[in-house]
Structures are given as C-alpha cells and as structure tokens.
Amino acid sequence: MMLPSMRRQRTIPAQWGPFSEFEELYERMGKLLGSAMGETSQGDAWVPLADVMETEDSYKVEVEVPGMSKDDIDLQMSDNELVITGETGEAQESGERTHRRTRRYGRFEYRTILPGDIDGERVSASLDKGILSITVPKSDRGKARRISIDQG
C-alpha cells in the first residue's frame, strides 16, 4: 500500500524583512563597541549623550543632564578614567497615565578613558542649563621645554 506524500511548507515569519537581520547586527555591534569603549558597566544604567574634545592644554567633556542639579550627579576620576553617575527621578503625578515616554529615567552612567598625559588633580566641572562641562588639564610632563645651555 502506498502512503500519500506530505509536502512541508516553509513558513516565513510575518515580521521578517530583508534588512531586519542587518538592523539586529548593527544594534548588537553598537552595544559591543559601546561596552568595549567603557560607556556603561551594567545593563540597567542608561548612557547620557556626551562629547569629548581636546584642546592644546586640556580635554573637555560635555554631558547632557537636563533637569538635574549638581547634587544629583557624582563625578569621579580614577587614574585616566572619568566616571559620571547619577539618577533621574520619574516626573509623573499620581493618577496620571503615560501614553508615550521618550525621555530616559533612572540610573545613568557615563565612562570614558582619557590619554595618560592628564593632570587628575586639577580637574574642574560646572553645570549650566543641563550641560555638565568637565575640563581635565593635560600634564606638563609630556610637553617640550627649552633647556638653556651654560657657557663653560
């Protein structure tokens, strides 16, 4: 007796798109690069937007921390690593329902490693209009200096 043959159909997931795998790969590479550059140490902390710039005599770091006061932010310098942490509270009144949330709340952490030619003792910081500005002076050790020659 011959049994009828069954044809199996391949099903394509409803959400599948030709670029979805590239988007997932791009997102995973971004997370990998971010962790390799020291942007965050734990998955529950978000990373604020920041710029790191270099001038002739210092490094400048500007971090966006809207609505925060200086008491909400902790700034530490350990060797060449600058670590900025803090926490933003959720601005929601009791009895309110949230329909859309695009702002980030909760614990944040920003880390960056600066080159070895810094003077960690003279770091200064200021907070103005939601921008935390940190200036890390370069060390004088690596700078060229003129040496006088004595006549003998």
Score class of each variant (00 low, 15 high):
14 A>M: 11
14 A>N: 11
14 A>L: 07
14 A>Q: 12
15 Q>E: 15
15 Q>M: 11
15 Q>G: 11
15 Q>W: 14
16 W>Q: 02
16 W>H: 05
16 W>L: 14
16 W>K: 04
17 G>L: 04
17 G>F: 01
17 G>K: 09
18 P>T: 03
18 P>C: 04
18 P>H: 03
18 P>F: 02
19 F>Q: 15
20 S>F: 13
20 S>V: 14
20 S>P: 01
20 S>Y: 10
20 S>H: 14
21 E>T: 10
21 E>V: 13
22 F>K: 09
22 F>G: 06
23 E>N: 05
23 E>G: 03
23 E>L: 04
24 E>N: 08
24 E>M: 13
24 E>W: 13
25 L>R: 05
25 L>A: 07
25 L>M: 09
25 L>V: 00
25 L>K: 06
25 L>N: 07
26 Y>L: 11
26 Y>F: 05
26 Y>H: 13
27 E>W: 08
27 E>L: 11
28 R>C: 00
28 R>V: 00
28 R>D: 08
28 R>W: 02
29 M>E: 14
29 M>S: 14
29 M>Y: 14
29 M>W: 14
29 M>R: 13
29 M>N: 11
30 G>K: 12
30 G>C: 09
30 G>W: 02
31 K>E: 10
31 K>M: 12
31 K>I: 11
31 K>F: 04
31 K>S: 02
31 K>A: 05
32 L>G: 07
32 L>M: 14
32 L>D: 06
32 L>K: 11
32 L>F: 09
32 L>S: 14
32 L>P: 00
33 L>D: 03
33 L>S: 06
33 L>C: 10
33 L>K: 11
33 L>N: 10
33 L>M: 09
33 L>T: 04
33 L>P: 02
34 G>V: 00
34 G>F: 08
34 G>T: 02
34 G>E: 09
34 G>Y: 07
34 G>D: 11
34 G>A: 15
35 S>E: 09
35 S>I: 03
37 M>H: 07
37 M>Y: 13
37 M>E: 08
37 M>D: 07
37 M>L: 12
37 M>K: 12
38 G>A: 02
38 G>M: 01
38 G>T: 06
38 G>W: 01
38 G>E: 00
38 G>K: 05
38 G>I: 02
39 E>K: 06
39 E>T: 01
39 E>Y: 12
39 E>C: 04
39 E>L: 15
40 T>A: 15
40 T>F: 13
40 T>R: 15
41 S>R: 15
41 S>P: 00
41 S>W: 03
42 Q>G: 07
42 Q>F: 09
42 Q>D: 14
42 Q>V: 14
42 Q>R: 15
43 G>Y: 04
43 G>S: 08
43 G>T: 07
44 D>C: 10
44 D>M: 05
44 D>G: 03
44 D>V: 11
45 A>R: 14
45 A>N: 05
45 A>I: 02
45 A>L: 02
45 A>K: 06
46 W>D: 03
46 W>H: 01
46 W>N: 01
47 V>K: 02
47 V>W: 01
47 V>I: 08
